[in-house]
Design a protein around this nucleic acid. Structure first.
Lengths: 206, 206
DNA sequence: GGATGTGAATGTCTTCACAGCT
DNA sequence: AGCTGTGAAGACATTCACATCC
């Protein structure tokens, strides 16, 4: 069960999204074809993706919606909740800290940090913005497992070091910087400008 | 020159980022090895990526920083500016509309839309939030080429249709919905929750 | 009949390794 | 000597096609 393509994991998360719509609508069963159509891929791809983890379908019938949902949540590790910290209470950071989509998927933002004295102490929903110098102890004390970095590039590595020292197991980095973290800490980068740049490339080439 | 891997395009944008740091620092020349190190890839990969578009380096020496910068900007279509609209003035939409990183890379947010009467008319920096019902005419009149969709999933397709009718050539979609657009409109999806979900998968599997 | 599950075939991307400039 | 540029090899991912089962 090791060595699953990264692209497969991403697609599984997408399938789960659709599946939850089917769940809400009360659809009892769904075919690989139906999932593929909505997810922008092919039926064979859907079946191959799922087959890495077992065989959850019934031949001739398709997949039972509630069961496949449960399975996918278990596979993705979404059958539990995570405690998450956001570092950087600028516009994007604040928006992410309050983004309902995170809590809806099991990611609870339990702490927000910034280094700007003007921001420290302010409230953001129910949480208070805390001093970035306290990242390490707070992360450790609160049992925070995931850190989201939304600082300027120059501050990102220092912040990441604090998160790691506090014991996070994963970091989602929005800063346009290449972070260095220990190999046992999972790191994913999201670069907003980059997405527009690939669009620019596509527009320029035809 | 057709058929460039998507991953290559993304990496080129990353190289450009680093190159601009070298440019700022006045470093005259850079090797594929140096670029690889910072970009989290290998020297061979850097050279292969660049070789799709020509040979910009000097053997035994490396790449001239200013020239490679110019070339990359030209390849990525970043040697010009783009007019961009943001639809959805919620927390994330507002943050994106004011995100300095976009303007810095040549993407000017020239219009912001929302359908909520409470938000329409409000100012966001220098721009006023406009009625989403006017997307099509405003996009057409303002010569907007790129639309960023940051609405709830339920509204996203309608908004996309308006953008397309107005004449955008590309859409960056943050809504957790699979949009349908004509084949000549470039579409890229960013799903914030998805990124955390792939981290969750990684945490669950070891 | 209809849809899954999966080896095998195909296609795509990355890495290797070395010839060729400077 | 140093570092690029690139075919060829290898690794990886997707698609095909069909046997299998409900």
């Amino acid at each position: 069960m090791r060595k699953i393509p990264d692209s497969t994991v991403r697609r599984l998360a997408v399938y789960l999204q659709f599946l939850e719509e089917f769940e809400a609508a009360g659809t009892p069963t769904v075919s690989s074809h139906a999932l593929a159509e909505r997810g922008g891929t092919t039926a064979a791809q859907v079946r191959k993706d799922l087959s890495f983890f077992g065989s959850f379908g019934k031949r001739g019938l398709g997949y039972a919606v509630p069961e496949l949902g449960r399975r996918l949540r278990a596979i993705l590790g979404l059958d539990r909740r995570y405690r998450v910290a956001v570092v950087g209470a600028g516009r994007v950071g604040s928006a992410l800290a309050q983004y309902a989509g995170f809590a809806a998927r099991g990611f609870d933002i339990v702490a927000v940090f910034d280094s700007d004295p003007a921001k420290i102490g302010r409230r953001l929903d129910t949480r208070e913005v805390r001093d970035a110098r306290t990242i390490e102890p707070v992360v450790a004390a609160e049992g925070i497992e995931i850190g989201i970095v939304v600082t300027p590039a120059a501050a990102a590595q220092e912040v990441a070091d604090g998160l790691v020292a506090g014991g996070v197991r994963a970091i989602l980095n929005f800063a346009p910087a290449q972070l260095v973290v220990p190999p046992d800490v999972e790191l994913r980068n999201v670069n907003l400008a980059l997405e527009l740049e690939t669009l620019s490339y596509a527009l320029a080439h035809r």
